[in-house]
């Protein structure tokens, strides 16, 4: 019976591609490692103390939380100070709104973009009163612009 080279080719190729597939699968399994399963990070809910300490008409920079707390006639609101462009921290200049030091984005006092590369407005953050009577800002949760918190 003559040798069948085609069959041998097929078997050889099958073996080769099985080996490649096995190695590929193993590699894919191992390379899952750098993708974190758990994203560690601090809890971003901040207690700010007695609401009465913030005067009406005041704007307070909360460095640790990364937001500004405003108190107006209608109540409290908090605006994130993390630039929506590339994550620098914007600073509030009285009467001018927010300015970003890294790439020149400008935001109005309500957080909306007035100039520069920022793709979105600065988010407003959720405010609540904690059970112990402190003002509490949740920097993980956004609320629609214009939402005020009344004590």
């Amino acid at each position: 019976m003559p040798d069948n080279p085609k069959r041998r080719d097929l078997l050889g190729l099958a073996a080769l591609w099985s080996a490649v597939a096995a190695m590929g699968t193993a590699l894919a399994g191992v390379m899952r490692l750098p993708k974190p399963a758990v994203l560690p990070g601090p809890l971003r809910i901040y207690k700010l103390g007695d609401p009465a300490q913030f005067a009406v008409g005041s704007a307070t920079r909360m460095e640790a939380g990364g937001f500004y707390l405003f108190r107006g006639e209608e109540g409290f609101h908090a605006i994130s100070s993390t630039c929506t462009h590339l994550g620098c921290v914007v600073a509030l200049n009285e009467g001018e709104g927010f300015a970003c030091p890294c790439h020149g984005s400008r935001f109005r006092t309500d957080g909306s973009v007035s100039a520069g590369p920022a793709p979105a407005a600065l988010p407003w953050l959720e405010i609540a009163l904690s059970p112990d009577g402190q003002l509490q800002v949740n920097a993980e949760t956004q609320v629609p612009k214009g939402t005020r918190f009344r004590v």
């Binding site: 974190p36 560690p40 990070g41």
Partner: peptide, 16 residues
């Protein structure tokens, strides 16, 4: 988001 997570390994810039 995938690329950012791969670089930072966390939700913030820190040890990871």
């Amino acid at each position: 988001r995938f690329q950012k997570q791969l670089l930072l390994g966390a939700n913030y810039v820190g040890q990871e």
